[in-house]
Design a binder for these strands. Structure first.
Length: 940
RNA sequence: GGGCCCGUAGCUCAGGUGGUUAGAGCGUACCCCUGAUAAGGGUAAGGUCCCAGGUUCGAGUCCUGGCGGGCCCA
């Protein structure tokens, strides 16, 4: 007789192997078919708005973008299950240089060869292509959202909003125009971005130039002896000397005055020996040392113009080259410019766009700058101000198109002022009203806003939203009032911003416009475009304020920590500058994906992992589990080992779910659930732990601590279910009559455990939760697991002390398992715990810990359990164990008496004496008879 | 070079306001089971809490300085 047929073994069609890469697309189709996203937007419930930061529509998604979107998805799904209505409108950043450059490369054209409108058309197609690529990749990750109606910064409506928000800034008086040095190719006659220059070796003159000290500087250094005194500067770009306005010293270094023949020279002490080595001079006599600050605000005289050059302090002056005294031309260098602003110097750049000095420049007017180098050197020599001259080869930026050296040249740029309307102050105040997670995010963005310069908005490019400014052709007056721009903005909303480039100013302005200043009737339109950070910075206006399901401000922005400088800040400035309020209530940041050693992923290190590979090899579910299981506030590690561990954890969760489905195959919750009052104590204890789990997990979701969720669910499967509930109850589940109340009690718990597990995992393991849910052997309350709510425990709280009693019992159970393990090791008499009988000696102080031996047979999964005092002396093959945690408690393990029941495998003395089935124990005997009587079983 | 941040067992994580032998799960080793079976159970071994100073009766926890790593600037 094969008694196995008479058991209630688990039955389910839920597959053990997930075959995730293959099956995930089926679930995606299912969700689409039932229109899951929109179903989730029905009904009411407090709205939770997570505003999506737009990734750049260029290339495929990478681990960072995948991580970001999955985090958002987990948050939104968990908020929905907690009762919120949580829409998700994904977006893309579509304008900008990288796309424009890629398009030029694809077309094989150089900048300016095609009309702007033409190149913009190609850029739009290119961006659209990658929006679609990325959309499919994000969807494949199981990210739920309004993918049919995302926001694109290049859509006409969005472009119109960008332009409108710019006009608001313009009208409010926060926008101004000023010269600023930019990288410039005088051959191509164009500004270049950092991405458009290549660094190549280049031979340059290297000259040391003496600037005579002016009277105020001499007075500041009374130690100076009579006679000529000079400060020595070093430069490799003599052509910038005509634009010299200052000499910078480092306030940290000591400076010296030295005797140099008949003259006195001033330089940093740390460069003196180097200077002597280069010029071949003897180390000179140091007359005195002084601090750089003594010269601040004093002057040197320009070497060949009759004007002064201001002494300033700057910490970027180094001792690696030169003299520690740096020639400053604010129109020709980034740092020079910054210093110039600080000291109120003019941004002076007498160089025309073709690389010639302006005709009006004395001495060198009209000359090409490179040709002028030698003439400038000659002039210095003639004036006796050239201390030394040689040539050096160094790395220098070149135009990547024409390969010619580029220069820094000041051109007119547009700025948003941080001060004009107290934008900086207002932004800093707004930062205080936002919740930053983690907390240090606040310090980070605060530091950046405190120090940042005015926002340079203009780019000399084609693929972007035009800077909509008209200015009077006659007097140069800028039209600031919004009324001049209303007609254009309205047309933008319909047609996009191409028409700015197609039409003349007169066609774009309201008819009859006159300059408010001079009455002129001719106007220029600005040709530059806006920085793309402005595009995404106004997304609150283009998306939050426009979409009916959204609203301003958002509850949450969630991006990588690099966005403290990027989107968090541009959004903050745009919103504060136009609305006076931050666009978000809270900002959550995540770290960056790094490899198993904590190093950043880069092509050169060869440690880059692509999401597509993970999806193909393991499935999106494993990627989601990875996102959830790491503490994303720090760097997020990713390696083969980590993935292997995750796959194992995944299998445990999957398999446990599978077992629950199987063991509940004959369970109908509507009819079979055992009421709380009738539940055995052990099930009540399990329910208590289940309640703890629900509380812990829901709290972790609420606080965005998903790694705690994963940890809790994983351990729940291993400890509560596999090792405790299932292991201990296996006999009842399999061997008792299907309707046995204790069996139904266990099923009642396992049923609630399944409902809990499947709901709590759904935001993270979205595919698997659905898979499990669709395999329920009983009626489902909703069409998809994602339409359910989180569970809340509705059973009574445990009485004080009761839980502790059960924890003590489990600790004693652990001692018994140790004793059993010892018996397995030392004798071969015990294999399965059911082979064993356990005898326990319990000193009086443990009164009450063990009351019912039958309960302990059950808990310890042994065939026989007795409490005896004293214990018999252990015989051959028996083991006596002194409990470690319970002093005085002794456990004797020996072979269980009687014979093994062929059905339940327990050893019982009555086996062999039954009336009909000799090989069964009493319990199995009656179960089988009942089954037979009920016609559930026919025995041959 | 500057600003912000991180560094606990092979892996992923716990360790309120400083206080007994630093925890969990996984993995590993060994054992058991074969009625969750390319499953399941058990036992055990793993840590100079990055390093060095300091404060303290006492520091993984506070301070200073290093080292390593990340983001953003220069």
């Amino acid at each position: 007789m094969d008694w196995k047929e008479t058991l209630n073994l688990p039955r389910t069609t839920f597959p053990m192997k997930g075959k995730l890469p293959l099956r995930e697309p089926e679930f995606l189709r299912f969700w689409e078919k039932i229109d899951l996203y929109h179903r989730l937007q029905e009904g009411d419930g407090q709205v939770f708005i997570l505003h999506d930061g737009p990734p750049y529509a260029n290339g495929h998604i990478h681990m960072g973008t995948a991580l970001n979107k999955v985090l958002k998805d987990i948050i939104l799904k968990s908020r929905r299950m907690a009762g919120f209505k949580a829409p998700f409108v994904p977006g893309w950043d579509c304008h900008g240089l990288p796309i424009e450059l890629n398009v030029e490369k694809e077309l094989g054209v150089k900048r300016g060869e095609l009309p702007k409108v033409e190149i913009r058309k190609h850029c739009r197609t290119y961006a659209q292509r990658f929006v679609e690529v990325q959309r499919e990749e994000f969807r494949r990750l199981g990210v739920l959202g309004d993918w049919e109606r995302p926001y694109l910064t290049m859509s006409p409506g969005y472009e119109a909003t960008i332009a409108r928000e710019f006009v608001r800034f313009l009208a409010s008086g926060q926008v101004y125009r000023r010269k600023k040095p930019v990288l410039w190719c005088s051959h191509c006659v164009t500004a270049l971005a950092e991405a458009e220059v290549e660094y190549e070796n280049h031979r340059s003159p290297s000259i040391y130039v003496k600037f005579p000290l002016a009277e105020d500087a001499r007075e500041a250094l009374p130690e100076l002896p009579p006679g000529p005194a000079f400060v020595v500067i070093w430069t490799t770009t003599p052509w910038t000397l005509p634009a010299n306005l200052a000499v910078a010293l480092n306030p940290e270094y000591p400076y010296v005055a030295v005797r140099w023949g008949e003259e006195v020279l001033i330089l940093a002490e740390g460069r003196l020996s180097a200077l002597c080595a280069e010029t071949g001079a003897e180390l000179p006599e140091i007359l005195f040392r002084f601090e750089a600050s003594r010269l601040e605000g004093k002057h040197a005289r320009h070497p060949f113009y009759d004007r002064l050059s201001l002494f300033i302090l700057a910490d970027y002056v180094t001792l690696e080259a030169g003299t520690g005294c740096v020639h400053i031309a604010p129109g020709h260098g980034e740092e020079d410019y910054e210093s110039g602003l600080r000291y109120g110097l003019e941004v002076y750049s007498p160089v025309e766009d073709t690389g010639r000095f302006e005709a009006s420049l004395p001495l060198f007017g009209g000359q090409g700058i490179w040709e002028a180098n030698s003439q400038i050197i000659a002039l210095l020599k003639e004036k006796g101000l050239l201390l030394h001259q040689e040539e050096i080869e160094h790395s220098y930026p070149h135009c990547w198109r024409c390969k010619k050296p580029v220069i820094f040249r000041a051109t007119e740029q547009w700025f948003i002022s941080m001060e004009a309307q107290d934008l900086r102050k207002k932004a800093l105040e707004a930062i205080e009203r936002v919740r930053w997670i983690p907390r240090w995010g606040k310090d980070r963005i605060k530091g950046m806003v405190e120090k940042r310069p005015d926002w340079c908005l203009s780019r000399q490019r084609a693929w972007g939203v035009p800077i909509v400014v008209f200015s009077c052709a006659a007097c140069g007056e800028i039209l600031r009032d919004e009324k001049y721009y209303q007609p254009v903005l309205e047309r933008f909303a319909q047609e996009g911003t191409d028409l700015w480039f197609q039409l003349e100013a007169a066609e774009l302005l309201p008819p009859g416009t006159r300059c408010p200043s001079c009455g002129g009737q001719e106007f220029r339109k600005e040709e530059d475009i806006l920085d793309v950070w402005f595009d995404s910075g106004v997304s609150f206006a283009a998306v939050l304020e426009k979409r009916p399901e959204l609203g301003f401000p958002a509850d949450l922005y969630l991006e990588g920590s690099d966005q403290h400088r990027g989107w968090f800040q541009s959004s903050l400035l745009c919103a504060v500058g136009t609305r006076g309020e931050p666009p978000y209530r809270a900002v959550l940041t995540h770290g960056f994906v790094v490899d198993g050693h904590g190093r950043k992923m880069s092509k050169s290190l060869g440690n880059v992992v692509h999401p597509q590979d993970i999806i193909q090899k393991y499935g999106a579910e494993i990627l989601r589990l990875w996102v959830a299981s790491e503490d994303y506030r720090e760097d997020i590690r990713l390696s083969e080992e980590i993935l292997k561990r995750l796959v194992e954890a995944y299998r445990k969760i999957r398999n446990t779910s599978r077992y629950l489905l199987g063991v509940l195959s004959d369970f109908d919750p509507a009819h079979h659930q055992v009421p709380w009052e009738e539940l055995p104590e052990f099930e009540r204890y399990l329910f208590h732990r289940l309640a703890q789990l629900i509380k812990r997990v829901r709290k972790a979701y609420e606080q965005f601590e998903f790694h705690l969720v994963v940890q809790a669910l994983h351990q729940f499967c291993i400890l509560d279910l596999s090792a405790l509930a299932i292991d201990i109850n296996r006999d009842r589940l399999y061997c008792e009559h299907p309707e046995d109340p204790r069996r139904r009690a266990t099923q009642t718990y396992l049923y609630q455990a399944l409902e809990t597990l499947v709901r709590l995992m759904a935001p993270i393991l979205s595919f698997t939760a659905e898979d499990v849910y669709q395999h329920y052997p009983f009626v489902r309350e909703a069409e998809s697991v994602h339409l359910l709510s989180f569970p809340s425990p509705d059973w009574p709280e445990a009485e004080p002390g009761w839980v502790e009693k059960w924890e003590k019992r489990l600790a004693l159970r652990a001692e018994i398992t140790k004793a059993l393990e010892q018996a397995r090791k030392e004798t071969k008499l015990v294999g399965s715990s059911l082979d064993a009988e356990v005898l326990l000696r319990l000193p009086p102080e443990y009164e009450g810990l063990v009351e019912d031996p039958a309960l302990w047979e059950y808990l310890a999964i042994v065939s026989s359990f007795k409490v005896l005092d004293p214990l018999p002396a252990p015989e051959e093959g028996e083991v006596l164990w002194e409990a470690e945690e319970f002093p005085g408690v002794q456990i004797l393990v020996r072979r269980a008496p009687g014979q093994k029941c062929a059905r339940c495998w327990q050893w019982k003395p009555e086996v062999g004496s039954g009336s009909r089935f000799k090989e069964l124990c009493d319990r199995c005997h009656s179960v089988v008879e009942r089954l037979q009587a009920e016609g559930r079983l026919s025995l041959s």
